[in-house]
């Protein structure tokens, strides 16, 4: 985005009306979506799609180049025995680890995603956040997962939240920007909806539920509200925005429920890694075991699948 476009964005008015959300209605819709029975070939199709949508993640204080390197190997070879299994969409690491990941993943086609903006709290001065983004992008990050300033948002400083996202977007250059709302700290679904709309108007390429460091992290109701916000934004602007639930999605069955929700809310165009991601560290193996179960009819053991 050029300078003038950026200025326009910073001066652009905030969305003036945010549709209300009724929690019980959302939960009822979720329950109904979860009653979908996904069997046979549609299940295998879903499981493979899920693998291709994973942002394989390690975001620990104890991360080392060794750990990140191993994770990248797993990302490229989820299960060595099956050549036709898709690889994950991205590896998600701290900025310090971008170089390591970029090198390990090479020409695999797997993106490097880096959290930034003083993840997970977002408590840092603006220039440091921007520097962090520029550094990660400079090291080769394809995607940036930023956190919003929840404090600002909860105080009602929506302009500040909006401008911050807009500036981060600019700092990303060609890298894609995912905006983490940390919905577990927002309190109510109305606020989730509001934050989603704000983020999209400010330029987010993706909106993302959580850092994974706060409970509750991703939930189905929160994700539904965000998907509905994306739909309304699409109706209004024609621009597609991606969705990334993250944290706590470790079972294939739950991941399929997310896909059902995605399919019945946003439809076909979003059913791919370009527009939907799972932020997860241990989902892949459960999906692999489910695929094996579908092929063999036999329930599986973790011992037969590499942990990372």
């Amino acid at each position: 985005m050029g300078r003038s476009a950026q200025e326009r964005l910073l001066k652009s008015p905030l969305p003036d009306y945010i549709t209300r959300v009724d929690q019980v209605g959302v939960e009822e819709r979720v329950a109904r979506l979860c009653s979908r029975s996904i069997k046979k070939s549609s299940k295998i199709q879903a499981l493979k799609l899920i693998l291709s949508q994973i942002d394989l993640t390690t975001l620990e204080g104890q991360d080392t180049p060794g750990k990140v390197g191993q994770l990248c190997q797993k990302a490229m070879r989820l299960h060595g025995a099956w050549p036709d299994i898709p690889h994950v969409a991205a590896v998600c690491v701290y900025p310090m680890m971008v170089t390591v990941a970029k090198k390990a993943l090479g020409e695999s086609g797997i993106n490097v995603a880096s959290v930034a903006t003083a993840f997970p709290s977002g408590m840092a001065p603006m220039h440091i956040k921007l520097d962090e983004i520029k550094m990660a992008v400079g090291e080769g990050a394809d995607e940036i997962d930023m956190v919003i300033s929840r404090g600002n948002f909860l105080q009602g400083e929506y302009r500040a939240v909006f401008d911050e996202i807009a500036m981060c977007k600019e700092a990303c250059g060609n890298a894609h920007l995912k905006v983490i709302l940390e919905t577990g700290e927002l309190g109510a679904l109305d606020r989730v909806r509001h934050a989603s709309t704000l983020a999209m108007h400010a330029g987010a390429d993706f909106i993302k539920t959580s850092t994974g460091k706060i409970q509750p992290a991703a939930t189905l109701p929160v994700t539904l509200v965000m998907l509905q916000a994306i739909r309304d934004y699409f109706y209004e602007t024609g621009r597609m925005v991606g969705m990334k639930p993250a944290g706590g999605i470790s079972k294939a069955k739950l991941a399929i429920q997310y896909l059902v929700m995605l399919r019945e809310t946003l439809g076909d165009a979003w059913l791919c890694p370009d527009w939907f991601r799972f932020g997860a560290s241990s989902l892949a193996n459960d999906v692999l075991m489910q695929i094996q179960k579908q092929h063999t009819g036999i329930y599986q053991s973790e011992d037969y699948f590499s942990k990372d």
């Binding site: 979908r36 029975s37 996904i38 069997k39 046979k40 070939s41 549609s42 299940k43 199709q45 879903a46 799609l49 739909r231 699409f234 109706y235 602007t237 024609g238 896909l259 399919r263 019945e264 946003l266 439809g267 076909d268 165009a269 059913l271």
Partner: peptide, 18 residues
């Protein structure tokens, strides 16, 4: 018709689950 339409005719069909 709305300016931007979604497509629910998807590549991912649910198999019968009788």
């Amino acid at each position: 018709e709305p300016a931007h339409k979604l497509n629910y005719d998807t590549r991912w069909e649910y198999s019968p689950a009788p």
